[in-house]
């Protein structure tokens, strides 16, 4: 398979030169220095590596970069357009919905994706929609509260 030479990331075309079998996570972090996307487990269990691919939350550690060429990729660095925080980012800040914060970028993108398909989720829908994300510090109730508030304020943005 041909090498991947372009990636559409955060609204701009980035030149890369990557084996198509490499993970999207590695290309984002190691080639493009977009380190807001986190490595947590490499097995698709923790969702710290979540990015949006065409608006849908995707585990970048299990995604081969060859499969996303030409698709719109949004990382946490691309969410705050022109410095203004996305409502989900703001809600995480307002609720202090983090401790160490390592899971937070993935959580936020998972929540943006959830609100994209369900703008007004119930708490049960937030829990089931976010259940693939691990916060080892145990801030889950705060994350639910933050997403609830972002939804109330029209978190689709």
């Amino acid at each position: 398979m041909a090498r991947v030479t372009e990636l559409l990331v955060n609204g701009s075309t980035r030149r890369i030169d990557a084996d198509p079998d490499r993970t999207l996570l590695s290309v984002l972090r190691d080639d493009l220095d977009l380190t807001g996307t986190k490595f947590g487990c490499g097995e698709g269990q923790c969702a710290a590596c979540t990015v949006l691919v065409d608006g849908v939350a995707t585990r970048s550690c299990l995604t081969r970069v060859g499969t996303v060429a030409g698709k719109r990729i949004t990382t946490i660095e691309g969410l705050a357009a022109a410095g203004a925080l996305h409502p989900v980012q703001q809600a995480f800040l307002d609720h202090d919905a983090m401790q160490c914060g390592y899971c937070t970028p993935g959580m936020i993108l998972g929540a943006v994706s959830l609100l994209g398909r369900n703008p007004n989720p119930s708490d049960a829908e937030i829990v089931s929609g976010m259940n693939g994300h691990i916060c080892r510090c145990g801030t889950y109730p705060r994350v639910v509260a933050a997403i609830r508030e972002a939804a109330r304020k029209g978190g689709r943005a």
Partner: peptide, 12 residues
């Protein structure tokens, strides 16, 4: 609130 919260929610 957490002091560097903004750096965390923006991935910086």
């Amino acid at each position: 609130r957490k002091l560097n919260g903004r750096e965390i929610v923006t991935g910086a």
